[in-house]
Design a protein around this nucleic acid. Structure first.
Lengths: 153, 153
DNA sequence: TCTTGATATTTGCAAATGCATTTAAACCTG
DNA sequence: CAGGTTTAAATGCATTTGCAAATATCAAGA
């Protein structure tokens, strides 16, 4: 029953959260791009490693969801990571349609080398935001995240 | 000076704001993709229209920054929008290196057709977040946005 | 004014992306 | 337990992307 949404021009770009979030993430991603390049990583490869560093042995489909990468793109990113010796594929024992991906020591090392830059960029972006405010911010993000449910991508 | 950042595995993906924001924006962008396709819009084209609908007559370089699109990609997106009659290019009077972009009525109509879906997706994502919480969230986003300054992309 | 250097946009080209299709395996249902 | 359906991952292919180079214009100094 809500009325029609106010126009974007009325609220302004910088009062529309999706715009701000896209802009912030664009900056974040740009900031770590150079370091990724040094390590031979692309965004899909980096994201796969990030997720695997936390939840190893995932099935490719789920990995794509968590890494926020198209399934076919991820499949090829895994090819590249495997060629680099950073992950390995292994068929699932019970269901051989499933392919599980495991991070290797080399993969962990690469992500460990990148992580300080990610954390540093994050710290730069959130400079001047108090811990309390950050906690509230994360709490809201988590509520929004919960609204996504398990929808693909 | 700050000690080394805790590892991602220690804090968890869903406590790391950049991950949550990337995930949320991925969902947002995926949700409006179908509507964009119906209107013949790609993400760069849509973003250009969105920015122009608020700030018309911008120079291409600035438009790229606000639209969060690589310059060369935007240049081609403008080609396409121009071919569709949704924007027009005009050389700047004072400095003819500059190209200003103006949205046309057709461009406004296309964005107006898309906007309800963008606003609706936004509303879905923020369902259950109180107005107060939303205000606080936006305020934090704006602080972070201010930290970006005028850095490119 | 001519030269050197900076800035804005476009374009060439190789690489990356995503949609649609294919292949392979598991699940049902009669 | 065969046939049809669903699900997972990989792949073909056309399009898109982004880096680097080219082009065009302006600015500053000799």
């Amino acid at each position: 029953m809500k009325g029609s949404a106010p126009r974007l021009g009325e609220i302004g770009l910088t009062n529309y959260p999706p715009y701000l979030m896209n802009r912030i993430m664009g900056r974040y991603n740009a900031a770590i791009r150079a370091e990724m390049a040094k390590l031979g990583l692309t965004t899909p490869k980096m994201r796969a490693l990030a997720v695997l560093s936390v939840m190893d042995g995932q099935v490719i489909g789920q990995l794509a969801v968590h890494a926020i990468v198209e399934q076919s793109t991820l499949s090829r990113a895994i090819d590249a990571l495997e060629a680099d010796g950073m992950v390995r594929r292994a068929a699932d024992g019970a269901d051989s349609r499933l392919v599980r991906v495991f991070i290797t020591q080399a993969g962990r090392s690469a992500f460990d080398a990148l992580w300080p830059h990610m954390a540093g960029t994050y710290a730069d972006l959130f400079a001047g935001i108090t811990p309390d405010e950050q906690r509230a911010f994360v709490a809201t993000l988590q509520k929004i995240h919960a609204n996504i449910g398990k929808a693909e991508v």
